[in-house]
Write a protein that binds this DNA or RNA. Structure first.
Lengths: 241, 241
DNA sequence: TTATAATATGAACAATGTTCATTATATTTG
DNA sequence: CAAATATAATGAACATTGTTCATATTATAA
């Protein structure tokens, strides 16, 4: 009995210790993560350095290595946070649109807008070479399913309301994914097209070609009208040093 | 008269001197360019460093700065060479295909194959952040028109033989460009899809969706059959360190 | 052959990521 | 409460990066 009691007490104490340790550790990690996210949103990936992050967090550069294996580890952690933020961003921007193909289109445009506003996050998601993904497969999956996750609700709505052929959903999802990422890559990294308005015009044209011009049903690649850009974006930093 | 003679002689000598100087300068540049290209094809962009290039070329690292403004300048020069090489590569791989939509499709697949064989060149073309493009607009245009240039002959053939609607050519070109680059980005940089065969299957599916399943005419996004991969590729180095 | 111009070179600097012995702080023990 | 111990923060140090510049070497001129 006494033994059991002692064991329980010891376990409880250990648990509290571990818990406290964990809380403090998580707090410290949080400081560095927040600093990294701020830098990524501001200066972008090129501004991320161990000494930079540490200064922003108010610690010495070597302290980071007490909480993260290396700088890639730290940067990787930011990805899931940004994905969540991206989902909120899109939900906020599209909540007024009527459900269905219209909102699906607006969702894709809004997804693009998120990366136009934070080009550093696009770099992080799609361009960054991060060493040793071996253990980070989950993060890579998160990135690869990023657009699909953002659009999931709308796809479900469209499928359940017969607005799309279920057997075509996967192909169209893929088509959207590749087109959106290709366009963002060329625009943010290679200044093509050369103007924002031209980019948005191309974007809506491509989305209409993929999801159909008329609302309600997905038609197959009809003639795409160059509709005016759906969303305005004030701050595009093309992020080339 | 004598004056004129002297002037001409002097001019000639100067010209020869300049010419010689230029020849030697070009030769030196060539050594460094070749070294850089070899490294890019082998180790990829991550292997490119001033000291690495210099060693490969048999000179001291600082000698490079007598011939190039900086390392970006040197790397940039390689791009047009690779574009030419890519065009030859594609021409060689597709010469047996019947002209028209079939060869156009094969051309796009072959373009992809080039970058699968040399992922470092994909990095250079589309991912590299190269500082100060101000004066390099021509090179950027070369990259942005890379796929179009490779496909130009086939597009002309298809247009002049009524295999495509001329008013749709530009949109389809754009669709191909974004899709191909988006797919390459995800596959080479994010291991998606996870296998080569799955990637090639997706690629042919997307190309068929864009250019039509049946040969002869471009149909609008028909049901895409998962045809087997057209070209084999033995060496895919996904280039993540 | 000597004087001069051209060019190849490595030392030096700043900035990068990472490691590690040392200092400083917090906790446990006597 | 004081001393001993465990934990954590730190900057010095190293290797590697791109770039500059004074110097050494080589080629050309007189």
């Amino acid at each position: 009995m006494n033994n059991v009691h002692y064991i329980c007490t010891v376990n409880l104490i250990l648990e509290i210790m571990v818990s406290n340790k964990s809380i403090q550790e998580q707090r410290m990690k949080g400081y560095f993560i927040q600093a990294t996210k701020d830098i990524l949103k501001g200066e972008g990936l090129k501004g991320v350095s161990v000494r930079n992050i540490a200064q922003q967090a108010g610690y010495s550069y070597s302290t980071i290595y007490n909480y993260f294996k290396d700088v890639n580890d730290l940067v990787f952690v930011c990805i899931s946070d940004f994905q969540k933020e991206c989902e909120s961003f899109v939900a906020e921007q599209t909540k007024e649109k009527p459900q269905g193909i219209d909102r699906l289109k607006a969702t894709v445009v809004s997804y693009v807008n998120y990366f136009l506003e934070y080009p550093g996050i696009f770099d992080l998601f799609y361009l960054a070479k991060v060493g040793d993904f071996g253990h980070k497969a989950a993060t890579i999956d998160l990135i690869n399913g990023s657009l699909d996750a953002v659009c999931e609700k709308e796809w479900n709505y469209c499928a359940s309301h017969g607005l799309v052929k279920v057997e075509e959903v996967e192909r169209i999802k893929a088509q959207l994914r590749y087109t959106v990422i290709g366009m963002l890559l060329l625009y943010l990294n290679r200044r093509f097209p050369s103007s924002y308005s031209e980019f948005m015009s191309q974007l809506t044209m491509q989305i209409n070609a993929i999801l159909g011009n008329e609302e309600g049903t997905v038609k197959a690649v009809p003639d795409a009208t160059q509709s005016s850009s759906l969303v305005q974006n004030s701050l595009i930093s093309v992020n080339i040093r």
